[in-house]
């Protein structure tokens, strides 16, 4: 236990040191006069701009728009992915029908369909939501299908010997057996969909962090571009770490292998 704690502390310390070195490097480069401040504002300027944008409510508004899209899109694709995975395992014929179209769709990057989505849904939340769903659906669906297909023969036999009806079988055996795969899929899906959402907001949106960055670039406000980019990185990091910590805490007792 103590050894883990020391390792963790050392890791955190080294990570913070690396961030500090990047910050110092950035400050030195921006102060050296080698690069124009319009292209590379000083860290202090970016911080001040960020505080101003937060106080005026502009930053919070764009963060809220992006978070709302990611939450809604992620919830919808999670439900759809789990449901379809369960159905394809239960009905093999459905799996046969869907295998080819899904394999084709999976190879198309979500951003490649953005022009089509703009035509169909316009420049608004509908398009962003669709992008998040397209980006996160496949990791969730594929990992859940893989997980559901890994229910052990021993557990299937147990269910048969107990004459377990379909619903308790799903909730008590199939879903927990698939959980390690599902958690991995959700984690992957989150990072894919976060990146895809920001990409879509750069192309076609009237709000959100991607839009904020694009808009600031058009106004030649490099400091605001930096605020937007840093927010994207920090928020994505916090959300992913929160997801990992949350699942770890939630599953610690019953699924120690996932929590580890």
């Amino acid at each position: 236990m103590r050894i883990n704690k020391i390792k963790y502390d050392g890791r955190t310390r080294r990570g913070l040191l690396a961030l500090l070195l990047i910050l110092i490097g950035w400050q030195l480069l921006a102060s050296s006069g080698l690069v124009s401040v319009y292209l590379l504002p000083k860290p202090g300027t970016v911080l001040t701009t960020g505080i101003e944008m937060w106080r005026s409510g502009v930053l919070a508004e764009h963060i809220r728009a992006s978070l709302l899209r990611i939450a809604l899109g992620f919830a919808l694709s999670g439900l759809a992915g789990l449901l379809l995975a369960g159905l394809t395992i239960r009905f093999r014929a459905l799996d046969d029908y869907l295998a080819a179209p899904l394999a084709l769709l999976r190879m198309i990057p979500p951003l490649a369909v953005t022009p089509l989505l703009i035509l169909w849904l316009g420049i608004g939340s509908g398009t962003q939501l669709a992008i998040v769903i397209l980006a996160s659906f496949f990791p969730i669906f594929l990992s859940a299908r893989d997980g559901f297909s890994r229910v052990s023969e021993a557990h299937r036999e147990l269910a048969a010997s107990l004459n377990l009806p379909p619903l308790p079988y799903f909730t008590h055996i199939a879903l927990p057996s698939a959980l390690p795969s599902i958690v991995t899929g959700l984690r992957l899906a989150f990072s894919y969909s976060w990146r895809a959402l920001i990409g879509a907001e750069l192309i076609a949106a009237a709000s959100g962090l991607g839009y904020l960055v694009m808009n600031a670039q058009e106004m030649l406000r490099t400091d605001e571009v930096f605020v937007g980019i840093l927010c994207i990185g920090v928020l994505g990091w916090i959300l992913e770490a929160g997801f990992m910590r949350g699942t770890s805490r939630l599953l610690r007792r019953r699924f120690p292998e996932i929590a580890a």
């Binding site: 557990h155 036999e157 010997s161 009806p165 927990p176 019953r254």
Partner: peptide
């Protein structure tokens, strides 16, 4: 028929009470 297997075959993510509840169909 009810079966007892070579290994207890309890579901590791369920408590004793929940494992026993399976025999009562959940």
């Amino acid at each position: 028929c009810a079966m007892v297997f070579q290994e207890p075959r309890l579901l590791p993510w369920l408590t004793v009470e929940e494992n026993l509840g399976l025999a009562l169909r959940g």
